[in-house]
């Protein structure tokens, strides 16, 4: 029995005006209410019936001031649940200090999608290829989750638990993404391998943050997308380079280690082998790019 649907499934729609109201609805609907921010991932999934239709869509956009991007206290970046990808891409603050994030956002989908889609939504959707995940992992970001029971801060590294699965429970809301202050002398880059040059999911995504001084790698974070059930840090690879003098040999070793750490699968988008090979290519390129003048 197959119907290819043009219409969305019949769902209710509510738009709470405060976080409290939203959290109450979250609790009330338990597993039956889906959060709606930009809807750019949710709507296609509903239309194609990839997920069971929720009874209700709980729209965040009635809540004022959730679209913030701030560095008010100077101790790191805060991204509200409704900050769009386009806002991340064009924010002067982010471009100046967290260039890797605006660069990543600009590589995603289309202007139309980025005008609606949010960083928080990209993370909660939790596909292995979620583009914002690798740079945020490399930036040591944390997620602030809220429910009626209270708040908790989860390191992004612990946030993803499987394809389309996160630690976010049915009554919670990812209300803010927090990014610590970037160390001086550090630079980052996100490399996204795709067949075409736009409108693509990453075949492999690699984010690298390097803090370098006098030819020494003081610190490095490497995060990979689309090569494991979740976006992942390549910590063994990081350890190869951390504290060492940069050398071609060591960078290659790092890249190889990252490839070994990755756990890609075969699917219609690419084979396991190609993905693993490309982790090596991209990690090497990313490290070189971050330390090039």
């Amino acid at each position: 029995m197959v119907t290819l649907y043009r219409r969305l499934p019949r769902v209710e729609y509510v738009q709470p005006k405060t976080i409290e109201e939203l959290l109450a609805l979250r609790a009330q609907y338990a597993g039956k209410g889906a959060l709606l921010a930009g809807g750019t991932d949710l709507m296609p999934k509903l239309k194609r019936r990839e997920i069971e239709a929720p009874g209700c869509l709980i729209d965040l956009k009635g809540i004022p001031d959730l679209a913030y991007i701030s560095n008010a206290e100077g101790d790191g970046l805060r991204i509200g649940a409704l900050a769009t990808l386009r806002a991340i891409e064009t924010s002067a603050l982010i471009q100046a200090t967290y260039g890797i994030l605006s660069q990543t956002a600009s590589s995603m989908a289309s202007v139309q999608i980025r005008n609606r889609g949010t960083v928080a939504g990209n993370l909660c959707n939790a596909v292995p290829s979620a583009d914002t995940a690798p740079p945020l992992l490399a930036l040591d970001a944390t997620a602030k989750l809220m429910s009626q029971k209270g708040e908790r801060i989860v390191p992004l590294d612990d946030f993803f638990i499987g394809p389309n699965k996160t630690v976010l429970s049915d009554d919670e809301l990812l209300v803010e993404i927090q990014v610590p202050r970037v160390l001086p002398h550090s630079r980052g880059v996100y490399l996204k391998l795709t067949q075409r040059s736009s409108m693509e999911l990453a075949v492999v995504g690699v984010a690298v943050m390097v803090s370098a001084r006098n030819g020494v790698c003081e610190n490095i974070k490497i995060a990979l997308g689309a090569v494991a059930p979740t976006p992942m840090r390549a910590k063994r690879a990081e350890a190869v380079l951390r504290g060492q003098h940069f050398s071609e040999e060591l960078i290659e070793h790092t890249a190889r280690t990252a490839a070994e750490e990755s756990r890609p699968i075969d699917d219609h988008r690419a084979t396991q082998e190609y993905r693993r090979d490309m982790v090596e290519v991209l990690v090497k390129r990313a490290v070189i790019e971050t330390i090039s003048p």
């Binding site: 075409r196 040059s197 736009s198 409108m199 988008r269």
Partner: peptide
């Protein structure tokens, strides 16, 4: 998305 036809960038 997956049946890949050229876009403006390609």
């Amino acid at each position: 998305l997956d049946y890949k036809m050229p876009r403006t960038t390609d």
